[in-house]
Amino acid sequence: MTHLRGRKPPISRDSNALTKVPAAPKHLAPYARAEWKRIMPGLIERGIITKADLSGLEELCVIRGLAREYADALRADPLNKVLFGMLNRAMQTARQLAAEYGLSPVSRARVGSAAAEDDDEPNAMMIGRNRARV
């Protein structure tokens, strides 16, 4: 399992960013295609998606589409533990992939926190290390 722990680098505009929303891949299922159409305009507007990112976004849309299909199936059979497990795993994977592209509140906040840190403040971990030895 991949863990996204620790400080993440800020997402910023890419000089090679796409300027137009590409058509959804033809092989996507209806829910996945709807997800593509939902998320792509905002990502293009923020200028963070390049041609190289499209396969990862396709994976995100496929997983979110599968999660919707599993949720539909689970409504028809609410006691199916296998479906519940598949839905749970798909939702976890979708959250992880979404965070990669700034599609969660926390990851969007990270985009806005790209301001330079104040270097004038002393580092508490370094106090006492820079003193001259007597």
Results as ranks from 00 to 15, higher is better:
Leu60Pro: 02
Met126Ser: 12
Gln96Tyr: 08
Pro9Gly: 09
Asn123Lys: 10
Arg68Ala: 15
Lys51Cys: 04
Val62Asn: 00
Ala124Val: 14
Arg68His: 13
Gly112Asn: 14
Ile44Arg: 00
Arg133Ser: 00
Arg129Cys: 12
Tyr101Glu: 06
Lys8Met: 10
Ala132Ser: 11
Ala115His: 15
Leu66Lys: 13
Asn16Gln: 09
Ser15Met: 00
Asp77Trp: 05
Asn80Ser: 01
Asp119Thr: 08
Asp118Asn: 15
Gly112Trp: 11
Arg95Asn: 07
Ile49Glu: 02
Val62Gln: 07
His3Ser: 14
Arg38Tyr: 01
Arg131Asp: 12
Asp77Ile: 05
Ala114Trp: 11
Glu69Gly: 12
Gln92Ser: 14
Ala32Gly: 04
Ile127Gly: 03
Val134Trp: 14
Gly42Lys: 06
Arg5Pro: 00
Ala115Asp: 15
Asp118Phe: 09
Gly65Cys: 02
Gly85His: 01
Tyr31Phe: 13
Lys26Asn: 14
Ala34Gly: 14
Arg133Leu: 10
Gly6Ala: 04
Arg129Asn: 04
Ala76Ser: 13
Asp14Gln: 11
Leu28Phe: 07
Leu28Met: 00
Arg129Ile: 05
Asp118Cys: 08
Glu58His: 03
Glu59Ser: 07
Leu18Asn: 03
Pro9Met: 09
Ala116Thr: 13
Asn130Val: 08
Glu121Lys: 13
Arg13Phe: 09
Gly65Met: 03
Arg46His: 08
Ala73Trp: 03
Val21Ile: 04
Asp120Glu: 11
Leu43Tyr: 02
Met91Ile: 12
Met125Gly: 13
Ala98Thr: 02
Ile39Thr: 03
Arg64Asn: 13
Ile49Ala: 11
Ser12Arg: 15
Leu97Ala: 11
Leu43Ile: 05
Arg129His: 12
Asp14Tyr: 00
Thr93His: 15
Ala73Cys: 04
Ile48Leu: 00
Glu59Ala: 01
Pro10Ala: 10
Met91Ala: 12
Asp53Ser: 08
Glu45Ala: 14
Tyr101Cys: 09
Arg110Met: 03
Ala124Asp: 12
Leu74Ala: 01
Val106Tyr: 04
Glu100Leu: 09
Gly112Phe: 13
Ala29Phe: 13
Ile44Tyr: 00
Arg7Val: 12
Glu45Ser: 12
Met125Ala: 15
Asp119Ala: 14
Ile63Asn: 04
Arg133Gly: 03
Arg13Tyr: 05
Arg108Pro: 01
Lys81Asp: 12
Ala34Trp: 05
Tyr70Thr: 11
Trp36Val: 03
Gly85Ser: 03
